[in-house]
């Protein structure tokens, strides 16, 4: 690591990002510490995936700064940005495996693109990465033959192929059966510790995420509404945090979408329509 270990790996300050008229982030500050698993949680549609794309430099914010390992992502030239991305791994929700290549070639892809390693060495590296996610035996399968969980594990192996400094996981648990969910939870934690990574997990699966993360940010309505270790958050007296963590149907986030008064609507709605 180029900087001292106690400075945060990712430092987001005053981030504002809007898509069209819709404000997605309204001035948020987030620090991602090195060597830890940090979770970013919030209801669907709060732009958690957008946050990862902002960190990866795929989107540019309207305002604010994003520093990754001391470099200002928003102002990097294309070539510097690409150099930085080689040190980041992003795991897409779908896995984003290249469908015309088999598992082995998918994992070999970044090595072939960015290095001139001889074939035997690429083979060794690919098998090591596949072994780490437990799919060495599946190397000749095509992505269409993999289950969702396996596809994500292959994508993980591919993301760590270049030995990045950080990993970002976009909704890694969505739509998984309990077993593959357990596998993914364990993998995120062990990879982080074994490879000395820093991980960012974006998720709304409370239990699984809380189990592996060291620190949690809660996002809602474009703001950070709560942060702390899983225990601290569990004891927090924020009504919103309690509703989200316990999955209550009604609370600060109302059950009903904003609407005119119910009785009023039923009784006089047709008159309003006639006018």
């Amino acid at each position: 690591m180029s900087q001292q270990d106690d400075s945060p790996l990712v430092e987001i300050r005053g981030l504002r990002f809007a898509r069209g008229d819709r404000m997605i982030f309204d001035g948020i500050d987030i620090d991602i510490p090195r060597g830890k698993v940090t979770a970013i949680m919030g209801p669907s549609g709060t732009g958690k995936t957008t946050l990862l794309k902002l960190i990866g430099g795929q989107l540019r914010p309207q305002e604010g700064t994003i520093r990754v390992d001391g470099e200002e992502v928003t102002r990097l030239s294309r070539s510097k940005l690409y150099a930085l991305r080689k040190r980041m791994g992003l795991l897409f929700q779908s896995g984003a495996l290249l469908t015309d290549l088999d598992v082995y070639e998918n994992v070999a892809f970044p090595l072939r693109e960015h290095t001139k390693l001889p074939e035997p060495m690429i083979r060794d590296l690919v098998l090591m990465k596949l072994q780490a996610v437990g799919l060495r035996g599946a190397r000749r399968l095509m992505p269409s033959e993999l289950s969702g969980g396996m596809a994500r594990r292959v994508a993980m192996a591919r993301a760590i192929a270049l030995d990045p400094m950080m990993m970002m996981y976009d909704e890694p648990f969505t739509g998984q059966d309990p077993i593959s969910m357990g596998v993914l939870v364990k993998l995120i934690r062990t990879l982080n510790d074994a490879l000395g990574l820093s991980s960012i997990v974006v998720s709304h699966d409370v239990q699984e995420t809380a189990a592996i993360s060291d620190y949690i940010y809660l996002l809602s309505g474009g703001k950070v509404v709560g942060q702390g270790s899983p225990d601290e958050l569990g004891r927090s007296d924020s009504e919103w945090a309690q509703q989200f963590l316990q999955g209550l149907p009604d609370g600060p986030v109302p059950f009903h979408y904003a609407a005119p008064d119910y009785a009023e609507d039923l009784l006089h709605g047709h008159e309003a329509r006639r006018r």
Binding site: Q58, Y82, R85, S94, T99, E113, A155
Partner: peptide
């Protein structure tokens, strides 16, 4: 189009491949 829809193009970008 399918590579775009399945985030393969975006994935490549994040692997620093144009």
């Amino acid at each position: 189009g399918l590579m775009k829809a399945t985030e393969q193009l975006s994935g490549m970008e994040m692997m620093a491949v144009d």
